[in-house]
Amino acid sequence: MIVAVARKELRALFGSPLAWSVLAVLQALLAYIFLGQLDAYLSLQPRLTQIANPPGVTEMVAAPLFSAAALVLLMAVPLLSMRLIAGERRDRTLVFLLSAPLTLTEIVAGKFLGLLLFLAAVATLPLLMALSLYAGGTLDLGLILANFLGLLLLAAAFAALGLFLSSLTASPTVAGIASLGAFLGLWVINMAVSDPDSALNTLSLLKHFESFNRGLIDTADIAYFLLFTALFLAFTVRRLDNERLGG
C-alpha cells in the first residue's frame, strides 16, 4: 500500500512538467558548477604536482560538486514537498486517501517514499558527473560514495521536514516558504557559534553533511539524519490524526 501511494506521487511528479523542469534546471546548474571546478583543477594541476601531498581530483572537483548539490536540494525540496499534503488539501483530494483503507502511517510513508525516490534521482545527477571523471584518471570512490550517502540522508531529512510543514496548512505556497525558511535556518543555525561543543552545532544540517563531504562516515551523523527524518514523519502522522480527531 505504501508503494501504491508512492507510485501515485511519482506519477503526479512525472506527469507534470514540474519534475522535469526541476531535473533539467538542476542538471544545468550542477553541470556548470562541475565544469567550473574541473576548469579550476586543470589550471592548478601543474602547481599541484610540486606539493608533497596534493589534493586529488575527487577532493577538488567531486566534493565541491556535492556540496553545491546539497544547497541546490535545499532550494528544490520545498518546491516539491509543499504540494504533498497542502496541495491535496487545497484540491480536496486528501479525502480520497483518508477514505481509502489506508492507515495514516501508510499515507505519510508513501508520500515520503515517493518524494525520496525522486530526490534520489536528483542525487544521482552529481554522482554520475563525478563518476565521469574516471575517463581522465583514477578517483577516490570512497569519498564519492560518502558524499552520495550524505546527500541521500540530507534529502530524506529535507523531505520529512517539508512533508510535515506541508501537513500544517492548506496553502502549498505557505508550506513552501515555511520549508525554505526552516531548511535555511537549520543550515546556518551554527553560523555565529564559536564554541565547538555548542548544541547548535548538533542541530545544524550543514555540520552533519560536512562530515560526509569530507569523506567521513560517522554513525552519529547517520543517526542524526535518520532520527530527524523519523521524528518529522511521526509528527506528520500525528498532525493528520489530530485533524481527524479535532476537525
Partner: peptide
C-alpha cells in the same frame, strides 16, 4: 471497515493530472 466503503464527497476528489 473502510475496504467495504465507497465515498463520493461533495467535491469529487479527483487528481487532475491523471
Amino acid at each position: 471497515a473502510k475496504a467495504h466503503l465507497g465515498y463520493l464527497p461533495e467535491t469529487p476528489p479527483l487528481y487532475r493530472d491523471l
